[in-house]
């Protein structure tokens, strides 16, 4: 009787999943001007395909999974595969249709334009 197969079978039967990807919150910068809210998040090692940005009912969720290619035996490791996760509350005035996200050298840039109605308007005073 092969003991290895026995162990593998027990593992399958376990209900709880014990290996999860480590979650960290990425450091972010948030800027705002009259037209949009701009968010930068540091996600080194994350590729475009592994990023998801969700805006739903005033809640913005960012997620990016880092899968690093490793080579050889590790002498030391200070960073590994993680999932970058962070949630924000965003104003309802964000024009969800026009949200743009770019990923460049491990930095996610998220442009969230405000809807026309929410933009500040200069009121011209007419002389009577």
């Amino acid at each position: 009787m092969d003991k290895n197969t026995e162990i593998a079978k027990r593992e399958d039967r376990n209900l709880e999943k014990t290996r999860e990807l480590y979650e960290v919150a990425p450091a972010v910068d948030i800027y705002e001007n009259d037209d949009e809210i701009l968010l930068y998040a540091d996600m080194p090692g994350v590729v475009k395909e592994e990023v998801s940005v969700n805006i739903d009912n005033g809640r913005l969720s960012l997620s990016g999974v880092r899968k690093l290619e490793t080579g050889g035996a590790a002498s030391w490791e200070e960073f590994g595969n993680v999932e970058f996760v962070r949630n924000f509350s965003v104003p309802q005035t964000i024009d969800v249709e026009k949200v743009k996200a770019e990923l460049k050298s491990g930095v996610l840039a998220l442009h969230m334009p405000k809807s026309e109605a929410a933009k500040p308007r200069q009121i011209e005073i007419k002389t009577a």
Partner: peptide, 15 residues
């Protein structure tokens, strides 16, 4: 990381 004839190094340098 180390293999027989080379070292492989990875560093985080976002942005």
């Amino acid at each position: 990381y180390q293999s027989g004839d080379a070292f492989e190094m990875r560093l985080e340098v976002p942005g």
